[in-house]
């Protein structure tokens, strides 16, 4: 799970300082573990070192920690690449999938989230088809079959979520355009 990408996504809406980022992170990913302040600053430090964010100012009355950060062009490109990259359909629930949709809705729009969902769904379906073919061959051992079952069950759960989210997000983009 990549906190760095989530922070970049939150900064896509405009400059924020560390405390603000922590709060926004915990609010937008309520199922994720709350972010420790130390982790926020460590991550911002790395992002700054890599040239993805830069300091944009100091909030005087807030004390020493009130430095705000903004996204650089490189940071925006980096976020963009991550938002488009399809995750390898893994045989377990990847919260990366979930985070990506949340961040896409934050940093871009419903259209962007939809494009990602469509591509991810295709990758999942195609993996599911491979596993189904593999376990249906007469040569498949009981071990092969139950391993495939395990992966299929988890992919199916992901797919149900992808499908439902696709429908919800389609509803969102309709609201926006209407």
């Amino acid at each position: 799970m990549s906190t760095a990408h989530v922070l970049l996504g939150l900064l896509a809406g405009g400059p924020r300082h560390g405390y603000d980022l922590k709060r926004a992170h915990d609010e937008s990913l309520p199922r994720a573990k709350p972010l420790a302040f130390g982790q926020v600053y460590a991550t911002l430090g790395r992002l700054e070192r890599d040239g993805y964010v830069t300091e944009s100012g100091q909030d005087r009355d807030g004390g020493p920690d009130r430095t705000s950060y903004e996204l650089t062009d490189d940071g925006r490109r980096h976020l963009d690449t991550w938002l488009s990259a399809v995750e390898p359909p893994a045989p377990y629930v990847t919260s990366e999938i979930f985070s990506k949709v949340v961040v896409a809705l934050h940093a871009a729009d419903a259209e962007r989230a939809r494009d990602y969902l469509v591509a991810q769904r295709a990758a999942h379906m195609s993996r599911m088809r491979e596993l189904t073919t593999a376990k249906s061959t007469p040569a498949a051992s009981i071990g092969d079959v139950i391993a495939a079952d395990y992966a299929i069950g988890h992919l199916e759960a992901d797919l149900r979520w992808l499908q439902t989210t696709l429908t919800r997000v389609a509803g969102l983009s309709k609201e926006v355009t209407n």
């Binding site: 379906m125 599911m128 189904t132 797919l159």
Partner: peptide
């Protein structure tokens, strides 16, 4: 309705 059933098909 089920993705696991659709996975038996050549395409969807």
């Amino acid at each position: 309705h089920a993705a696991s059933v659709a996975a038996y098909a050549d395409r969807e």
